[in-house]
Computed example of a mutant assay.
Amino acid sequence: MSTSNLDLFDTPLQHTNLLPYDGEVYYYGVVMDAARAQAYYQTLLDTLEWKQDEALIMGETVFTKRKVAWYADHPFQYTYSKKTKTALPWLPVLEELKALVETQSGERYNACLANLYHSGEEGMAWHSDAERDLKKNGAIASLSLGAQRKFSFKHKVTGQTQSIVLEHGSLLIMTGTTQTHWLHRLPPTRTVHQPRVNLTFRTIEAASQPR
C-alpha cells in the first residue's frame, strides 16, 4: 500500500503481514514525499559518522565495503559478528526520522544502526537480528533512502522465501517472532549503481549493557 501522501505525523495505518507464519513483517510503503526523502538521504550521507563495518572471521578482522554508523539514547554497546560498537549521541536528522517511524509504527526505539551501500554490488548475507543486546521479539523499523533494492526473507526450518522491493523513502517493520524463525538479507545486484542508506531503528535492553 502506497502512503506517499502521508504527512510527517499522520496516524498509523493497518498493514498486511508479509510472512505466511512464524513472524510479522509489515511494509508501509513510501512514508514521505520525494523531495523530503531526497533531502534526508543527502543529509544522512553528509553528516553520519560512517565507518567500514568489521567482522571477526576465523580470528581475523575483516572490513566490509559497506559502511555503518551506530547511534542511541545512551552510549549503548552493540555486539554482532563478534565486534562491539559503542553508540554515538543522536543527530537532529536521526531524531526527526525516529519520530516519523515511531508515529507510523506505534512503537518506541532507543537506537539506530545505519548502513550505507555504495552500489548494488554491496549487500548483506542471510542473518537474523537476534543478538542478546536487543529486546526479544521487539520491533525493528527499517527506513530505506536512496536506491531501490530487493529485500528477502527465508524461514530457518522450511526454507520458504519471501521478497519485497524497498522503495526510496519507504518503511518496513519486523516484529514478533520474525528474528527467531526467519533470516533476512539484501541480495547483491549488478543492475543498481546508486547508493542506498538504510536506517534500522531498534530497542537495546539496558539490562544487557555492561555495568
Rank of each mutant, 00 (worst) to 15 (best):
L186K: 04
V197F: 09
H74R: 12
Y28C: 02
A72E: 00
T47M: 06
H193N: 09
Q14R: 14
L143G: 05
K154V: 01
K150V: 12
T47H: 14
R196A: 05
T178A: 03
N17T: 12
V192T: 15
R202H: 10
Q77T: 13
G138Y: 05
H168W: 11
H184D: 00
R202Y: 02
E121P: 01
E167Y: 05
E96K: 08
K65H: 12
G59K: 12
K98V: 02
V197W: 06
W182D: 03
T47I: 11
E96I: 03
A87N: 03
S128R: 04
A207P: 00
W90L: 02
F63Y: 15
E107L: 00
Y40H: 12
L172M: 11
V101Y: 03
Q42Y: 01
E205Y: 01
Y27V: 01
E121H: 12
R108G: 02
R108D: 00
H15M: 13
G29L: 06
T158V: 10
P20E: 03
W70S: 04
Q194S: 15
A87W: 01
V93C: 15
N5W: 01
V68M: 09
D46Q: 14
G169L: 03
M32A: 01
E24S: 10
D33F: 10
G138S: 03
H181F: 15
L6H: 01
L183C: 04
H74Q: 14
G106I: 04
T161M: 13
Q52D: 12
K154E: 02
L94A: 02
H118A: 12
T158A: 05
I140A: 04
L172R: 03
E205M: 15
W182E: 00
S4V: 15
T84Y: 04
V62Y: 14
G159P: 08
P89M: 13
G123Y: 06
G120W: 09
S105F: 06
E49T: 08
A207E: 10
H155L: 08
